[in-house]
Amino acid sequence: MIGSPYILGRNSTSAIMLKVMLALIPGIVAHAWLFGPGIWVSLFLCSAFAIVFEALLLLMRGLPLKPFLSDNSALLTAWLLALSLPTLAPWWLYAIGMLFAIVVAKQLYGGLGQNLFNPAMIGYAALIVSFPVNMTQWAAPVGLADHALTLLDAFDVVFAGQGSISADAYTSATVLDTWKTQARLGTPSESILSQPIFGWAGGQGHEIVALMYLAGGLLLLSLKLITWHIPLAFLAGLAATAGVLHLIDPTQHASPLLHLFSGGAMLGAFFIATDPVTAASTPRGKLIYAGMAGLLTAIIRAFGGYPDGVAFAVLLMNVCVPFIDTYTQPRVFGHHPGHSKGRKS
C-alpha cells in the first residue's frame, strides 16, 4: 500500500550512472589516442565480466535480473576498474579484478548501495597486492613506444599472453614509479625530470588524460551529480601534503603539480572518491573524508611501498566513513545551533 507522494521527479539511478559513464568518455578517448587501443580491450573485458558476475550473483540471490542489470552500476564499476589497471594485462587479471569488485565487494554486502568499500578499488588493491609484476607494466605513450600496436595486436597480447611481441616493446614505467626509484637512488631531480617520459606537468601523455578526467569531473559538477566537497578536498589534501613534502626535501619528493596530473589523482578525485555509496554523506564528513584521502595518497606515494596510493587511500577512508558520518551530522531545522546532534541510539 504505497501512499503519497504520487508524483516523482525525473532523475533515476540508471540515468545517474549513465551520465557518470558519459563523463568518463573524454578521458577514455584521450587514453586510447595517446596509449594505443589497449584501453578498448580492457574496457570490453571488464564490462563483460562485470555483467556476467552480477547476473550470476543476482540469480543465486533469487532477485530479478532486469532492474539491477539496467541500473548500470556494475558497468560503471567495470569502467572505473579498467581505467585504473594497466591496459595490456593478461585477461585473467581483469577477471580476478572484477570477481573481487562485483562479487566480494558489492554483492556479498547485499548489492547496490549497501557495500562499505569502493568495489573498483577493492579490485585494484587485490590485484596490486597479488600480482605486482603485471600491475607495473603500463603501456608506454604511443610516441615513445618502439612498436605501435593495432587493435588486433592488443587482443592478441591480452589473450595469447606474450605472443609475438615482447612485453618491453610497448610498456614503460610510469612517472611515479621512475621518480620513486630514481629519487631513492639519489639522482638529482633535474635529471629525473629531463627523462623523455616526463611531460610538462605529469607523465608525457598522462597529463592530457588527467586533463580530460578533470573536464569530465567538471561536467559532473555542472550536472549536479556530485557536490564540490569531495573533489576539491581530495585535490587540496593531495597538493598541500605533496607541497609541504616538496618544500622539506625537493630532491626526494616530486612537485605537487606532478602529483596532481599523474597516476590516478584526477580519476580518483572526480570519479572514484565521489562514489556516493561508499563516500561520506554529510557535507563536513565529505571534506574530512576526501581531505584525509588526499593526504594519505601523498603519504603513500612519498614513503609507501606502492607507486600510486589513491586506491589504498580511498579504501582506508571508506573504513572511516561510518564513523565520520555518525559524528558529522548537520544541524537539524529547529535544533538550536551549537547543540551537537550526534546519533542517539
Partner: peptide, 11 residues
C-alpha cells in the same frame, strides 16, 4: 503498513 518491497513482488 511496512511498504511492500515492489521489487520482491515483481520477482
Amino acid at each position: 503498513r511496512y511498504p511492500i518491497h515492489m521489487m520482491k513482488r515483481a520477482a
